Simulated assay, not measured.
Amino acid sequence: MNYTWYRGIVVGVDGSQESLSALNWATLTADRHGARLTVVAVHPVPPEAGPGTSSLIEDAREQARRAARAARDRLGGWRPGGRDVEVLVLPGNAARVLAELSNNENIVVVGRRGRGAFDRALLGSTSSALAAAAPGTVAVVPAGAATDDPRRIRVGAGSVDDPDALGTAFAEADARGCPLEVVHVTGTDPISSALLDMDPVAASWHEAAAADLADRLGRWSDKYPQVTYTVVIRRGDPVANLLHGLTRYDMLVVGGRSHSAVTGRLLRSVPEAVVRGAPCPVVVVHARRHLVA
């Protein structure tokens, strides 16, 4: 039986080079999964009408239309996944509009600008807001990332496989024909880690973690027998371990739990941190997914 992981790929564009790179990644993803591609350009609307408001709205709308046309021109006659491309120009806040299009059956794709000080301080960036608060799966493609099939997919495996980051990673590795690296990080507290190293009984953490992972990996390996994978178990900071050695040619998959963007930044959640630090596309899985025939 053949399966597809996504029914639809939704990509946000604003005319920037970063958003066009996200479009490239989204187009290939639609092809790999036989999914429909929807291109969305969003223009802001002032909360209250006032002098000159109508002209500002029209300017913003026209800018969004130009972004939509640039995306359509970029695609040319390409029909990703063998389907017609839908192009939408919508009013509202970009992060909110795209989040509403994110659900269990869609993945929303956005670009991310560079990692300068201003970008790190920009609380309201669309990519960070979506990584924190979208109800479904979000892919963030940073500036400079490769947008063809990755050489390797790395997935962060938590203690509980919910949401289905592992399932997403296996499905992507199968669709793209690349190897999978499963990284499990435990013992982030340095004091607890030191005590574990000193206790010969507790020091068996590695074997216990490996046994726990084996059960969860087994069912996905049975579903995707063509996927080759390796398991890496480490102690330390999860963000540092997930980012270690990544290149622009990789893909990173992590699980996340939806919360406000402000809360995510205050808590320095793992998804928010890796989205800002990864040189490659990052897929953040918020929802438990269901394969569809």
Rank of each mutant, 00 (worst) to 15 (best):
L56A: 15
R61M: 15
Q63C: 09
Q63T: 14
A64D: 02
A64G: 06
A68T: 00
R69E: 11
R69G: 00
A70H: 01
A70M: 09
A71W: 02
R72Q: 14
R74W: 06
R74Q: 06
L75E: 08
L75I: 05
L75S: 07
W78M: 07
P80G: 08
G82V: 10
V87W: 01
L88Q: 03
L90T: 05
P91S: 03
N93Y: 05
A94T: 15
A94G: 07
A95D: 06
R96C: 06
R96L: 12
A99P: 02
L101K: 14
S102E: 03
N104H: 11
N104K: 12
N104A: 15
E105D: 14
N106Y: 07
I107F: 04
R112W: 03
R113H: 13
G114T: 07
R115Q: 15
A117G: 07
F118C: 01
F118M: 15
L122C: 09
G124M: 10
A129Y: 02
A131N: 05
A131Q: 05
A131S: 11
A134V: 03
A139I: 00
A146P: 12
T147W: 12
D149K: 15
D149H: 10
P150V: 09
R152M: 11
I153T: 05
I153P: 01
G156Y: 03
A157Q: 11
G158E: 09
G158R: 07
S159H: 11
V160F: 08
D161M: 09
D161E: 15
D161N: 15
D162F: 12
A165I: 11
A165H: 14
T168R: 13
A171E: 11
A173G: 09
D174L: 01
A175K: 08
A175I: 05
R176T: 15
C178Q: 06
P179Y: 10
E181G: 08
V182T: 03
H184N: 03
T186N: 03
T186C: 13
D189W: 10
P190K: 08
P190L: 04
P190S: 07
P190Q: 10
I191H: 09
I191Q: 14
S192E: 13
S193W: 14
S193V: 06
S193E: 14
V201D: 08
A202T: 04
S204D: 13
